[in-house]
Every structure is written in structure tokens, then in C-alpha cells.
Design a protein around this nucleic acid. Structure first.
Lengths: 328, 328
DNA sequence: CTGAAAGCGCTTACAG
DNA sequence: CTGAAAGCGCTTACAG
């Protein structure tokens, strides 16, 4: 900028005015400055600008895995809101590791992102207290923050799972298996709670062997589902706790001689083209991202509402797999 | 930092040493400084650090759409390489709009990211010349840069499409349709070139009505595929130019009374569970990202190889849909 | 309409 | 082992 000023024969502040389109510069001066800018290939260094202004015009998004199809639309929705506010998105994957989540979040704080959207891997976020105290805005998505009071935007996991299991019960099932994600993950336990509620409301018992929480690794899920489907009193229907479990469950059921009912949490592409089509409890990933980002930018404009919990509804989409009666 | 120094009764530089783990500080001094840091909730402001050091420890990734399942694994792979080098990832979607791509890229340059990975939407990147001249490193992925000489990492679209179409020909097809992305997109024209090569090598003519390039919008693709499949001399097989076209083609074919062969470019989840399984020419999205990021960081360590073009091989995966003979 | 001085919060290059 | 001064490249708050 100094070089530009020298070449155009003006002061630093005038260059700054031209670069930022501020008023109060003669057309002739502006022309000279612009010429110098072009000749020197000058581009404003935003690092310096950020240091002076205090705002980085960027927000951080920490999620589990950018490669998971659930997070793509969510990220994109956050990005669109950020873009509408002139902010860039810094993205990071925690790989479901609380320590990695913490490192990422603190690195983003050190960069002074204007705000943070976090899909938490860990269940203790007290490490964020000093940051929030220092003015950092943070919104949690998909799972609540642990041990701190913060905004959170969730899908109605409990209600969705309950409706999905009730759907299977309505089709005559009495022995229904539940295969879900690791019990450390909030959505997994909420969905299990929904399953138990639906069973209890129908007066049905739940055998321990019908419930399996753990890694969504295909081998683990295959083993768990296969165990429930064998033995003297196999389950006649399966409720899958998330998209990855559902996909593996579809593979397991495809290899079975008899049809078994299946309802999965999370919709996925082509679910309608499988035979049978896969009945799912759909959640709106893009809406989760959009609502969370809106909340964040609301805070960034100076509003300081008390931290709130927002639950987005889910939607049951019958496609065939969830309407198979027991013993079909 | 000034406050920390004052509270600990030391100089600024000593605080800096402790914060950065530099040697040459008495344990006792370090303890005092650490205490002040904790008491004040101090966190180093990386904006200032960046300004002084000249490196932001971040790279930019501009792609078409974060929500597209093809880009998720690619982004994640880039992120992992960046992480290994201590860098964060700033992500942006061009939405296939050249002007938006340009805005994003220039915004990232203004932030002085250390390097750039770009999946180009436009075909003229001369706007990057001043930046590259000023030392910005850029690697293009999936499609080459337009009108500038730059590193590029691609899948072998030509060879993959040619192999896919040859596969259909080997199963007896003579009239094969090609539905692809917009002709402005490099991969679309390369895959079309592969299609034409395979047809020519088999001595087969290509009717104009068998080829349709354009938007991957489901309506457009449905119309194009339907037209090729009707009339007095309908095609007996379809080659789909990318993942989104393939998905729509599967839907179209599912509604047809007779079986029609299909080979798609890009693999997708559950392709093996559809009936018939979908035969695809698979490319490795994660490898594209990994190789591009490796190249970028190689440049960032000071190496200045001449810009090179790297082509990653594709792999034909027969699953059933591509092995349906004509008139089956 | 224009510009000189101070300062954002660090690191660098020295000096003690 | 420790620290004072200068500077990274901008913007802010003034003054003319």
C-alpha cells in the first residue's frame, strides 16, 4: 500500500479510501491510485485489516466428517448464510475425537473467527468458557454442548425414533431390534429413548438382546443385526439409528431369505429406488445448518438472547421396507 | 499479551517465548507467565502472528458444491493433508458460477492463504496471474485451469469413458446414448471424447440424437434420456457422464418396461444394492484431493517444479446394469 | 478532499 | 536467561 501511495503520489489514507470504495476522493485522484494499484498488482492484505478491525469476517464450522453425506448439505447451508453476511467458512473434521474437536475449536478461536458452529464430538465443553466469556459466539448443532450453557439446534431424535418404531408396531411387529451409534453420542441415546417409549406405550417388553449401541463400522453393525435376527426368537423388524447403520442394515437384510422390516433414521439418496424402498425418519440437514448459522449471525449483530434449544421436526417417509408385516 | 507481561512482571518477548514453547526461560519465570496467562484467559491472537510471520497456516479450497457427495471425500482428503502440515482449510462453493469462483479465489488471496486448491467453474483463470506472480501457489483439481499454466490433478475421464462404452459394445450394443454435463465443463467433453473414440474404434456411427450435453438437472436429464429411448431406433444402452446423471438415469430406466443397459461415470453408495447393480467407471475422489494437496504443500516448502498435469486412473466396476445385452 | 500519526497484537533482530 | 525497539500492513481518529 505504501508503494501504491508513493507511485500515485498520495497519502496512505487515500489509497485506503480507494481500495475500500470510501467517498471523498476526486475522480482524478482515484484514477491515479487505481492505475498504481493495477501496475503494482496490489491486493489489500486482509490479515492487517483484520488485526485492526477486530473482525475476521469468517466463521468456523467443526463437524465430524466432511465426507459424511449428512454433513455436506449442512456445511453448504452454513456457507450460504455466511456468504450472505460476507463471511468465509473455515471447516474442520473432528473425526469423532473429543481431543481433536477441542484442538480445532481452540485453533479457530486463536484465529479470532467471528463465531463458531460446532457439531460436538465430546461431552465437556467447559474449555470454551474463557472464549465465550471473551465474547466468542458459539452455536452447537445436532448434539447439545456438554456442561456449558449454549445455543443448540437439534433434530427431534426422540420424537422421530418414537414415531418410526410406532410405525413398525402399527404393522404388527412385537419384537423390534434397535441398532444405533455409540452411547456417548447424544442422538444415539435420544433415539434409543424414543424406541423404548414407543415400545412401552404399546405395552411391549424390550429384551436386552434387541438393543445394540456402538460403532457404526459396518462389521460391528453387521454382527449386531445378524445376532438379533437369529436365535429362537429373532426380531421381525429393525430400527436403524442413523444413515450409516441403515445402509449396512440394508445390506444385511438383502442377504436374508425372508423379508424383515426396516425403518432408518436419516434419509439418503436412492432410498426410494431400492427394492423394497427404505422407509425412513428424515431430518433436514440443510435446515439444521441454516437455523444454526442464522442464530450465530443474529448474535454477531449484537443481540444477546439467552442460549436456547431449538428442535427441528422429523418426517416419516414410508417406502415399503417399514410396511412389511412380521412373518411375511 | 501486554497484560500478561505486566501481571507476570516480565517483558513481552518472554511471554511470547512461553506461549510458543521456545527455549530459554527459567522454569520459575515460565510458571509465573503461565499463571498470568491462565488468570487472564489469554489466547494468542493469530491475526497478529500471521501479519508478522507472513504465513497464515491455512489453505483455501474452492469447489463446486460442498453438498455434492463427490466433493465430500475430496475435501476431507485435502483437510487431512492440511492438518498434517498444521494448516486449516477454508472452504467455498462456486455453485458452478465462474464469477463466484473468481470472487472466492480473490477473497482467499486477500486473506493470504498459503495456497489454493481450485475445482474451477470458469475457463479463464488469467485473473490469477498477478497472484501467482506474487507467490501464491495454486493447484487445480478435476478440471484444468483455463488460459494459464498451472498444476492440475485429474481423473482419466477420456480413458474411463472409453473403457465404459467399449464395455457396452462388448456386450453387443450398437446404439448407445451419451448423457453428460454442460459442454463448458472439461470432464464432460473429455468423457464425450472417450465415448466417440470407443464408438469409432468399433466402427460404429454416432447419431446426433444419441448425444446430449447440458445441465445435470433431473428434468433435463430425464427428457434427454427419454428422447433417446423412444422413436423408431431407440438406443439400447446409456452412458451417463457423471454421478448425478447416473442417478437420474437409474430412475428413468426403473420406469421402463424393458431392461436397458447403463454404465455411469463415478461410483456412488449403494450402487451395488440396486437391482440390477449399477456398473460404473469409478474415480477416486479422495485420491484427487490427496494428490492435489500433496502437490500444493510440496510447493509451499519452497520447491518450484514446473506446472504438471497428473491423471489418476479410473476403474470399471461391473455390477449388472452394464452387462445387459441389447433387446434383453 | 487529503494526509500524518498512532495503534491493532504479535515476532524479529538485537543487545545485554 | 531476558527485554526494548522496530515493524508486519492496514484502519482509526484527527487535523488541515
Amino acid at each position: 500500500m505504501k508503494d501504491v501511495a508513493a507511485r500515485a503520489g498520495v497519502g496512505l489514507k487515500t489509497v485506503s479510501r480507494v481500495v475500500n470504495g470510501e467517498p471523498g476522493v476526486t475522480p482524478e485522484t482515484e484514477r491515479r491510485v487505481q492505475e498504481a494499484i493495477d501496475a503494482l498488482g496490489f491486493r489489500r492484505n486482509d490479515s492487517a485489516r483484520v488485526l485492526r478491525k477486530g473482525r475476521t469476517a469468517s466463521i468456523g464450522l467443526v463437524l465430524e466428517d466432511l465426507a459424511d453425506p449428512f454433513y455436506g448439505p449442512l456445511s453448504r447451508a452454513v456457507e450460504e448464510v455466511a456468504r450472505a453476511h460476507g463471511a468465509l467458512l473455515i471447516n474442520g473434521s473432528s473425526a469423532e475425537d473429543p481431543e481433536r474437536e477441542r484442538e480445532l475449536v481452540l485453533a479457530l478461536c486463536a484465529r479470532r473467527v467471528d463465531g463458531l458452529i460446532v457439531i460436538p464430538a465430546g461431552d465437556d465443553h467447559r474449555y470454551l468458557e474463557p472464549e465465550i466469556g471473551a465474547g466468542m459466539a458459539a452455536v452447537f448443532v445436532d448434539r447439545p454442548a456438554g456442561r456449558i450453557d449454549a445455543d443448540v439446534v437439534l433434530s427431534d431424535s426422540y420424537g422421530g425414533a418414537r414415531a418410526g418404531v410406532a410405525h413398525l408396531i402399527a404393522y404388527g411387529h412385537r419384537r423390534i431390534g434397535f441398532v444405533g451409534d455409540h452411547p456417548r453420542i447424544h442422538t444415539a441415546t435420544e433415539r434409543l429413548r424414543g424406541y423404548r417409549a414407543a415400545m412401552a406405550e404399546a405395552g411391549l417388553p424390550v429384551a436386552d438382546s434387541w438393543v445394540s449401541l456402538g460403532s457404526t463400522d459396518p462389521e460391528r453393525v453387521t454382527g449386531a443385526a445378524t445376532a438379533m435376527l437369529s436365535g429362537p426368537e429373532p426380531v421381525t423388524a429393525l430400527f436403524a439409528g442413523n444413515n450409516r447403520v441403515t445402509v449396512t442394515a440394508v445390506r444385511v437384510l438383502a442377504g436374508l431369505p425372508r423379508p424383515v422390516a426396516l425403518v432408518g433414521f436419516d434419509d439418503f439418496e436412492l432410498a426410494d429406488l431400492l427394492r423394497p424402498g427404505v422407509t425412513v425418519v428424515a431430518q433436514d440437514a440443510a435446515a439444521l445448518g441454516r437455523v444454526a448459522a442464522d442464530r450465530l449471525f443474529h448474535r454477531l449483530t449484537g443481540a444477546t438472547p439467552r442460549p436456547a434449544r431449538t428442535e427441528l421436526p422429523t418426517r416419516l417417509i414410508p417406502r415399503g421396507s417399514g410396511e412389511i408385516p412380521p412373518g411375511a
